[in-house]
């Protein structure tokens, strides 16, 4: 298994151009079908930033809740407590109960694109990804890896390329910027629910209401 995953990593997904339809038909058929049924997705994440100038990555972890049509509730617990709520309306950050930042997508169109893309990455919303990226992909057995390169120069400034790997679930998202600095997000312990989210979950997103 270890050997297999090494070879999968060694293979460069960007050597295998694909289209959204092709990926959905083959590589991502299973996970995408499963994800498309989920209304709520919960799990834990590790967010690490690899900068060339710093030997150790900057690591944060916490848990997240994705709710279809609402967005993602991203709760960082280490090294500090901070909540980010990301919706297509914008992004709101709250530290220890007080709101520290709000970016509305009406004022910042770029925020909405990036928020949308971020949401699409975790749910394998290939149709949306296909609108913004050139897609690449390959798979072996259950395991798959897809690559994305932004079509618009505006996106290029944010990240140059991204890879998403997984098997049954999305397991890792890697975003690489033009300088070669990387942000790696590992997901684990993912639970699906096909039921509509309860009031308690919805309340988490109230934060993002203007």
């Amino acid at each position: 298994m270890l050997l297999w995953s090494l070879t999968a990593y060694a293979a460069d997904p960007f050597a295998h151009p694909a289209t959204g339809e092709a990926l959905l038909a083959s590589t991502l058929a299973k996970p995408a079908a499963q994800l498309s049924k989920a209304q709520v997705l919960k799990g834990r994440f590790t967010h690490s930033k690899h900068l060339r100038e710093i030997p150790q990555p900057l690591v944060a972890d916490g848990d997240f809740i994705f709710v279809r049509d609402l967005g993602v509730y991203w709760h960082t617990q280490q090294p500090f407590d901070s909540v980010v709520v990301l919706t297509s309306k914008g992004i709101v950050q709250r530290d220890e109960g007080s709101q520290t930042m709000r970016l509305s997508s009406d004022e910042q169109p770029a925020v909405r694109v990036i928020a949308d893309v971020f949401l699409a990455l975790f749910t394998l919303d290939v149709a949306r990804l296909n609108a913004n990226f050139d897609l690449y992909g390959l798979s072996q057995g259950d395991r798959w890896i897809i690559g994305l390169r932004p079509r618009a120069a505006a996106m290029n400034a944010v990240f140059k390329e991204a890879t998403v790997t997984g098997a049954r679930d999305v397991e890792e998202v890697v975003l690489t910027d033009v300088h070669g600095d990387r942000t790696v997000i590992d997901l684990s312990g993912i639970e699906y629910s096909g039921a509509q989210p309860g009031a308690d979950v919805r309340a988490l997103f109230e934060l993002a209401r203007p």
């Binding site: 100038e53 944060a60 960082t76 901070s82 992004i91 925020v111 971020f118 944010v158 942000t183």
Partner: peptide
Amino acid sequence: AYTPTGLMQPIGIA
């Protein structure tokens, strides 16, 4: 540096 808000920025931390 530690949360996805950093991803919403046009230029990186470095």
